[in-house]
């Protein structure tokens, strides 16, 4: 019964899916195409392909400054959110304390909170504390907003790890501190790399929170946004294409690492008595 229904529905579903995917990806394809179009934006289909816009891009100082700023902020955000997120994940997995359920929800809240709320509240905090808006405040904003991502990813990693190994370490004379560095952390390394990549990618193209906290130095997304107010230039298409390519690579690496950690777990399960 259900099989025949699904066969009958299949063509409609296929068309629907194609339309949705086209809606999402066609603009990206057009953007990539235009980045190679000699006539820049407009003139479809592109008549003459060229790498001129990329050449222009590589000599554009402000763009590269903003790329460097974004890399700095993203690296810092990865370090900050992984450190704090690991501690939070450990607390959620290992400790039992009053208010744990509330703590869990509070930690995960930024995941569903609109970026505009997070950004606005962080801006108010920075202004009240009398600090100057700068890349450092952007780094703090990204780092704290992404703690929830780090916590969920690392908590999942901790849940999968074998507690008997930590007991074995203590049993063999290692202190809890030694056990953390020699057993817990190495066992988490896949989850750490996966979470790090994800956070890096999210931070690289973050706009909402950044918008409120930015000082004089732009990150790449804000630099692009700023230039767009003066009209779309083919150079923007070129840089967007590069960002897209790097993001795709990072997401694929992240996904593979994640699958590998899940895959090894699936292999180990049947061996358990």
């Amino acid at each position: 019964m259900s099989r025949s229904t699904s066969t009958r529905r299949a063509p409609i579903l296929a068309i629907y899916a194609t339309v949705v995917f086209a809606f999402i990806y066609l603009p990206i394809v057009v953007l990539i195409l235009y980045s190679f179009n000699r006539d820049g934006v407009g003139g479809f289909p592109p008549s003459h392909l060229t790498l001129d816009w990329y050449r222009q891009l590589f000599t554009d100082g402000p763009i590269w400054d903003s790329v460097l700023n974004s890399l700095l902020v993203a690296s810092g955000a990865v370090a900050l959110s992984l450190t704090v997120g690991l501690l939070a994940a450990l607390a959620l997995d290992r400790a039992s304390f009053p208010g744990k359920a509330l703590f869990r929800r509070l930690v995960l809240l930024p995941l569903i909170l609109p970026g505009i709320i997070t950004g606005l509240s962080l801006l108010m905090f920075v202004v009240l504390s009398g600090a100057q808006l700068s890349l450092f405040t952007v780094f703090l904003g990204h780092g704290t907003a992404l703690i929830s991502v780090a916590t969920t990813e690392l908590f999942a990693g901790l849940q999968k790890s074998d507690r008997a190994q930590e007991e074995a370490s203590l049993d063999l004379g290692a202190t809890p501190w030694q056990t953390f560095w020699r057993i817990t952390l190495p066992n988490l390394r896949l989850a750490l790399v996966a979470a790090g990549l994800l956070i890096f990618t999210l931070s690289m193209d973050e706009i909402a929170v950044t918008f409120f906290l930015i000082g004089r130095d732009n990150t790449l997304p804000l630099e692009i946004w700023g230039r767009l107010r003066r009209g779309i230039t083919p150079e923007i298409n070129a840089v967007s294409t590069l960002v897209f390519a790097v993001s795709v690579v990072l997401i694929i690496v992240w996904y593979r690492i994640r699958m590998r950690s899940v895959g090894t777990e699936a292999q180990q399960l049947p061996e358990r008595p």
Binding site: A164, Q165, P186, P273
Partner: peptide, 9 residues
């Protein structure tokens, strides 16, 4: 240990 708990890494 029952499942040996060897360190895989």
């Amino acid at each position: 240990f029952q499942n040996y708990a060897l360190f895989p890494h």
